[in-house]
Simulated scan of single mutants.
Amino acid sequence: MRHSLPAALRVFFSLVTLFGLTAHPARAAETYTEVTSSEGDGEFTIGPDYTVDKDLTDLGNPKGKSFEFTMKLADSKIFRGDDKTLEPDKKPVRTERKIFVYVPAAYKDGTAAPFLIIHDGPGSLKLVRNALDNLTISKDVNRKLPAFIAIAVENGGNDGKNSERGLEYDTMSDRLARFIAEEVLPAVLANADLKAAYPHFALTKNPWGHAVIGCSSGGAAALSMGWFRPDLFRRIIAYSGTFVAQQDDDAAEQAQFPHGAWDYHSELKLIEKSEKKPLRIFTHCSENDLRNKDPEETFHNWVMAGRRTSAALTAKGYHHRFVFSKATGHCDGKVFNQTLADTLVWTWRGYHGE
């Protein structure tokens, strides 16, 4: 008789394959030394006029391969879509989420590749694809990208408090990081179409080779993934980050973080008072980012939250880059079109493989 492994053991062996023995999460980085550099760190103001970076356009360079598949929420052990915090009648939950994967032409089968998780998939995937096509083959060593795999993950549906997307992105915990590591990445590695195209496809175990990008609540989620699990994710990109009080009011995490992501910079001084973590962090805020009518109203002022988060990261001594964009709104496309290539280059600076 054939016996199937218990769910817990299946997850364990998936993690062993992907990251090495989970009892030693830092082992993959023990023989790796990040090449640190302060080049590009600091605060930058752009606008009010904007251009499109040519490296984010199709320049006719060799293209990689794209893959797409779905994951049913009901099959998840972490985000099933049935949490008590949700209000599915008011904010519908998806039954399945799409996963988009782009393998750049510069990737060599059998290489343990670095990767970038993109929230709200496909999100910025088109721009990221163009950046990979153009900058993995760049002759300029100061403007070059490693051949990372782009993995865009669709959220579970809707937005704000009591939604599945809000639960996934605004909750102050390691839950999203675990979901990506324990469920999404093994699904990518097991995808039949991808395995047929790249029989020896592999992802690096080195956490310095694991990046994440998001905008709005996805930006807050990007920081939280690295903050709560720096053993899994260390390169963070947050555009128009929702560093405000948008965590579900009835979430278990409210007891420890009563104002959600606002507590990164609130009177709790989470960033300031916590031990410095091995992270490289990009943040951004638009001049006209979401805010309440009262510009001084706390807990829900995106501009205030973005600036205070940036100040806290800088004061703590993180490798941090902050961009403030004039005459732009929340998750404004003009900002992405001008800055994303530079942001990716800065984010991956110092990475040199395993």
Rank of each mutant, 00 (worst) to 15 (best):
L203Y: 05
F100R: 00
R80V: 13
F201A: 01
S37K: 04
S325M: 10
L145P: 08
H319W: 00
A23Y: 07
D263R: 08
S163L: 10
D289W: 02
R280W: 13
I213V: 14
H119K: 06
A327Q: 12
T339K: 12
N130E: 10
P122Q: 00
F115A: 00
A261T: 14
S66N: 14
Y351I: 14
S76F: 08
F19Q: 11
H210G: 06
A7H: 08
F69K: 02
I271R: 00
Y239T: 08
S266P: 00
D332M: 06
T347L: 11
N206G: 07
A312N: 01
Y32Q: 02
F148D: 00
D133E: 14
E354H: 12
E297K: 13
M172H: 05
K98Q: 09
D342S: 12
T36E: 14
F257R: 02
F233P: 07
P62Y: 02
E168P: 03
N142E: 13
F100M: 07
A245M: 07
P62G: 04
L223H: 04
A23D: 08
A29P: 07
A255F: 05
D249M: 10
E30P: 03
N61W: 09
G47F: 10
H200V: 04
V188K: 01
E87M: 13
W348V: 09
E183Y: 05
R175C: 05
F12V: 07
N292D: 15
T171K: 03
D294E: 09
G47C: 11
